[in-house]
Design a protein around this nucleic acid. Structure first.
Lengths: 209, 209
DNA sequence: AGCCTAAGCGGAGAAAATTCCGGTTAACAA
DNA sequence: TTGTTAACCGGAATTTTCTCCGCTTAGGCT
C-alpha cells in the first residue's frame, strides 16, 4: 500500500521523486488501458510492468500489491464521491436532513459500485489489505455521524457497518445477475432498510424468546 | 467445486469410486491437520497433495479449487448448523416465534464465523466461486422465510441479504480487532438490527428530503 | 561542477494456483 | 476370468503474484 493514493493521507511524508512520479503515471495509465481492453480479472502485473516499460519490482514498490493498484485506479472516482457527500449539493451533501443524506449516500455508493463493478469485484477477492482502511473508514465515519444526528438513541457505529455491508460488489452482482433484480431495486432495498432503521419506534417491547 | 460437499446436493450423480473416496478423505484429513498446525492462510495445495500422497491434479479434480477444499473442511460444521436451525430445539429451531428464531440464527452464525474465522477469511478472499451458492442460499431462504412469517409487509428477500451481509468474516474481524468490540457486542448489534427491522411501524411517514 | 545518499530501479527467482493430458484402474457385465 | 470403459491418477508445465537485493540516480549541498 502506498499511502499517497486515497484521501486520508495525513501529511505527505516526502515529495515524490520525478522518476517515481513518472513511473506511477505510466503504470496507472497502462493498467487503466488494459482493464478497459480486457477487464480487471485479466490484469497481470507482469504485463502492466512490461507495457509500462518498468520492472515488476517498481509496480510493487509503488502500489504494494495487486489491490493497491486497483485502489489507485478507483481513487479518482473515490475523491469525487467523497467530495460529493462532504461538500457537494444536497441531498447527498450538507444541507439536507440527515436521513435524506444517508439514503442519498447509499444510493450513490451502489451506483458507484455498479459503475466499476469489475474492479470492485477484484478488490474484494485478493488480499484483504486495505479493505477496511482509507475509504471504508471515511464512509463509515460519515454514515455514523449522520445516523447519530438523526437518531442519537441508536448504535450509529454498528448501524453504519450494517448499512455498508450490503453495498458489496459480490452481493450486488449476485442480486443483479442471479436474482434478476434491477439496480434500482437494489438501491430501493437499501434505501428502505435505512428508512426503516431511522424511524424505528424507540419503545422497547419485549421481543425476546 | 465438487457438488458432493454441501447439503444442497440434488441427487448423487454417481457413486464415488473407492480410490476416489479414499483420496478425498486423505486430502481432507491432511488439510485439516495442516490448517490446525499453521493456519488456513499458509495452506498450500501443493503441500496438501504431497502429504496426502496424491498428485495436485487429484486435489483439483476433487475440490475444484482452493476454496472448494475450504468449503469441504467447513462442511461438517455447516451440516450441524443447518440441522440446528432446521430441525433443532428452539429458539433457533422450529417452535419459537419467527422473530426469536431470526435473532438466534444470526447469533449462531456469528459464533460459527468467529469459531472458524481463519477459514472464513480465506474463503472470502480467493475465487468468488461458491460464495453465494450452497450454504448462502440456504441461509438466505431460511431467513427470508422467517422474516416473511414475522412481517409479510416487508421485502423479506432483500432483508435477508441485508442481515446476512454484516455476518462477514472480514468485517467481524475488523470490528473485533481494530474496533475493540467483543463478540457479544457484534452479536448484540446484529440482534438489535433484526429486532428493529422486525418491529418497524408499517405506517409510512414521509421521510423524504 | 562535483559529492553524497536516500529513494528508486529492474528483473531473476521463489512460491503458489491451476491446467492438461497420457497412462491407470475400479467396477461391472459377459 | 476377461474385456470394457468411464473415472481417476500423477505430476510436468504454465501462469501469476510477490520478494529480494545489488546497481543506479535524482536532487540537495558545498
Amino acid at each position: 500500500m502506498c499511502g499517497r493514493e486515497l484521501l486520508p493521507v495525513v501529511g505527505q511524508p516526502q515529495p515524490e521523486r520525478a522518476d517515481a512520479a513518472r513511473n506511477r503515471r505510466r503504470i496507472i495509465d497502462v493498467a487503466a488501458r488494459l482493464i478497459a481492453e480486457r477487464g480487471a480479472r485479466q490484469l497481470s502485473l507482469d504485463e502492466v510492468a512490461r507495457e509500462a516499460g518498468v520492472g515488476v519490482g517498481t509496480v510493487y514498490r509503488r502500489f504494494g500489491d495487486r489491490t493497491g493498484l486497483l485502489w489507485a485506479l478507483i481513487d479518482e472516482q473515490e475523491r469525487r464521491f467523497q467530495a460529493a457527500f462532504m461538500t457537494g449539493p444536497p441531498p447527498i451533501g450538507p444541507g439536507a436532513p440527515p436521513a435524506a443524506r444517508v439514503r442519498a449516500f447509499l444510493r450513490a455508493l451502489v451506483d458507484r459500485i455498479v459503475a466499476q463493478q469489475d474492479m470492485f469485484l477484484q478488490l474484494e477477492i485478493g488480499s484483504a489489505r486495505g479493505r477496511f482502511s482509507g475509504p471504508y473508514r471515511i464512509h463509515h465515519t460519515h454514515l455514523a455521524t449522520l445516523l447519530a444526528q438523526a437518531r442519537p438513541d441508536l448504535d450509529a457505529g454498528f448501524l453504519a457497518d450494517a448499512l455498508l455491508a450490503p453495498a458489496n460488489a459480490h452481493l450486488i452482482r449476485f442480486q443483479l445477475d442471479e436474482r434478476g433484480m434491477s439496480v434500482e431495486a437494489v438501491k430501493a432495498g437499501l434505501d428502505a432498510l435505512a428508512e426503516t432503521v431511522l424511524r424505528a419506534c424507540p419503545c422497547p417491547h419485549s421481543t425476546d424468546g
